[in-house]
Design a protein around this nucleic acid. Sequence first.
DNA 1: TGTAAATATCATATAGAGGTGATATATATT
DNA 2: AATATATATCACCTCTATATGATATTTACA
Lengths: 159, 159
Amino acid sequence: MLNQTSEYALRVVALIASRPPEEPSHATELAATLDVPANYLSKILHQLAGAGVLASRRGRHGGFVLAKPATRLRLATVIAPFEDVAAYRTCLLGQSACNDRVACVAHHRWKPIAESILRFLADTTVESLVRSGGAPPAVPARPPLSRENPPARGRSRRR
Amino acid sequence: MLNQTSEYALRVVALIASRPPEEPSHATELAATLDVPANYLSKILHQLAGAGVLASRRGRHGGFVLAKPATRLRLATVIAPFEDVAAYRTCLLGQSACNDRVACVAHHRWKPIAESILRFLADTTVESLVRSGGAPPAVPARPPLSRENPPARGRSRRR
DNA sequence: TGTAAATATCATATAGAGGTGATATATATT
DNA sequence: AATATATATCACCTCTATATGATATTTACA
């Protein structure tokens, strides 16, 4: 779904966000914890610092911290340096001329899904991920797809 | 979203499906119509034939037709040879251990979206795309995002 | 002031996606 | 049987994501 680099970026930012901001995290330790190539992660961290997502400090007692509160960090912002997020707005079939007026054959069916992806990335904060951990959200503010997603007639007998 | 090859596959299958099945479509003509590299498309067509999506006939008056009715061709089937569709079921953060029990921090928020993508690919038929063309579905079963997407409250006074 | 500990940067490697070009093979028509 | 018109197949090319490894630079502290 996302490219590898974006995945690393999200994971490392979430990890940093889960730690007390007093002492910065070291690149090598982060890499070991996440089981990600250290040198590669270094460059990602550097790019995230350049993008204003992280702040870095060099030298002894250096490391990385969030550049701003996790409550104000959106997933889209974190992956923006590595991924063309806006591309999800575009045509499923990769056609340049595809919009509400001149649409590819999939446009009207695909659009709501593309929008839900974009909204997820644009609205979800790093804080909300870290806060809930792996647990289901305490207040499921949004009954996920209730009407857009009628009871799956026929083929899925879920449990 | 999809890789280039999958996009070509969907487009070419939709194009073939839009034509009378009596006379098969030629690879070179399809490539020209879709503005896709001819040699590359040839290989894709061949793979689609191998996958049972298309039927091919060699020699003069040869070409490609659908191997079964468009009503029974799902998008997921068309792209399956080129894309690991099941990967969308997996973790947004690429973590191998991520499911309802042991979840990554994004799992419970991401899951409904991943499922809507999978459902779209698994349920949508080639016929439904071709039938509607680029037009919005005749019966707009779904008022797009009225409630899920409230008027951007608050933080939007940026510039 | 020297040194250890950290980030920053440079140079290179590798595999796979996407693409090109040429040739082999099958088939309908003459 | 010959030929034109198709698909099938083979060999190769190029660029980018994903790394790997080494070195340079900054900083805190003994």
